[in-house]
Write a protein that binds this DNA or RNA. Structure first.
Lengths: 146, 146
DNA sequence: CTTGACCTTCCCATCATGGGAAGGTTTATT
DNA sequence: AATAAACCTTCCCATGATGGGAAGGTCAAG
C-alpha cells in the first residue's frame, strides 16, 4: 500500500477508474454542485464514499453524468431526463418510448419558440413605429399603457 | 352615510373609482397575489388602506397594473418593467431610451429563440433516425450516451 | 507541521408565480 | 340580529435549475 495517511482510500483508488467529485465534474461537464443536487433529488444513485465521507465516482457514474449533461443541452427537464435514464438503462426498452418522449419535447420547444416569436413580432411592430429620438412621444409606451 | 358597519370605508368608496384588490385583479389581469408581490418588491407604490387594513385601488393604480400586465405579456422582466414604468411616468423621457430597452429585449428574445431552435434541430435530427418501434435500438439514446 | 486545494453539509438567492393556512372583515341571506 | 359566504390580511412553502458562500473536515506536498 502506498497510502501515507490513515484513510487514503481515494489515493489508492485513483488509477483504478475511481475519482472524486471534482474530477467527475470536470470529466462530465456537470458542476460538483449539481452532481450533489442530482444525488439529493434521486436523479442518480447515491455513490460510494471513502471512510472520510468523500464521494467516489466510477467510470460508469461519470458516463451517466455525461448522459445527463447532453440531455440538459438538448433542453430536457430533470424529470424527463429521469425517464430517459430509465430507458437508457433498460435493455428491454422500446425505441418508440424514447421517440415519443423526444417528440413531446420538440412540441414543448415549438410552443415556447412560437410564444417568444409572437412577443418578438409584437414588439418589433412597436419598435418600428418609434422614432427613438429625444422627444417623449413613444408608440411603445402608448401601447403598453393603452 | 349609507355605511352600516363601523369601518365601511370601502363600501363608501366604491362608485368613486376606488376598489379592493380582487376587483383590481380582475380589471387588470394581474392576480391579487402578484399585485401584493409587486408592492412588496417596490415595483408599484404602496396603495392606501381602509382602517381595517384592506388595500384600496384607484383607477390610476389599475391602469399601472394593466401596463405591467401588457409588459409581462411581451416578455419583459420585472426589472425591465420597472424601467419602463419610470419612463412611462416621466413626461421628459426620450423615446430613444424606450426604444433602446425594447431593442435589447428583442435581442434577448432572439438569443433564446436561437438557442431553442438549435435544440430543436439537433433533436429532430435524432428523432428522424429513430424507428420508434418495439426494438430497443435507439439512435437518440446512443447519441445521449456517446 | 503548515499551506493550499480539495471535500463535506447547510443555508440563502435567483425569477415569477401559485398554494394554502390562520385569522379578521364585509356582504348577503336567512 | 345571526349566520354563512366571500372577501381580505399576513406568513410560509413550493416550483426548476443553478450558483454563492460559510464553517469545518481531509488530503497531498513542501
Amino acid at each position: 500500500m502506498r497510502a501515507t495517511t490513515k484513510f487514503a482510500e481515494l489515493g489508492e483508488a485513483k488509477g483504478e477508474g475511481l475519482t472524486n467529485i471534482g474530477h467527475a465534474a470536470r470529466r462530465s461537464g456537470v458542476s460538483a454542485k449539481m452532481i450533489r443536487h442530482y444525488e439529493d433529488i434521486g436523479l442518480v444513485h447515491r455513490v460510494g464514499r471513502t471512510r472520510a465521507g468523500y464521494r467516489i465516482y466510477r467510470d460508469t457514474d461519470i458516463h451517466t453524468l455525461q448522459f445527463i449533461r447532453r440531455s440538459r443541452d438538448l433542453g430536457f427537464t430533470i424529470k424527463e431526463i429521469g425517464l430517459l435514464l430509465g430507458l437508457w438503462q433498460n435493455r428491454r426498452r422500446a425505441s418508440a418510448d424514447v421517440k415519443k418522449l423526444a417528440l413531446k419535447h420538440i412540441a414543448d420547444l415549438d410552443a415556447r419558440i412560437a410564444e417568444m416569436q409572437a412577443m418578438r413580432m409584437a414588439l418589433t411592430r412597436l419598435v418600428d413605429c418609434c422614432h427613438g429620438d429625444q422627444r417623449p412621444d413613444c408608440p411603445i409606451l402608448d401601447d403598453l399603457g393603452a
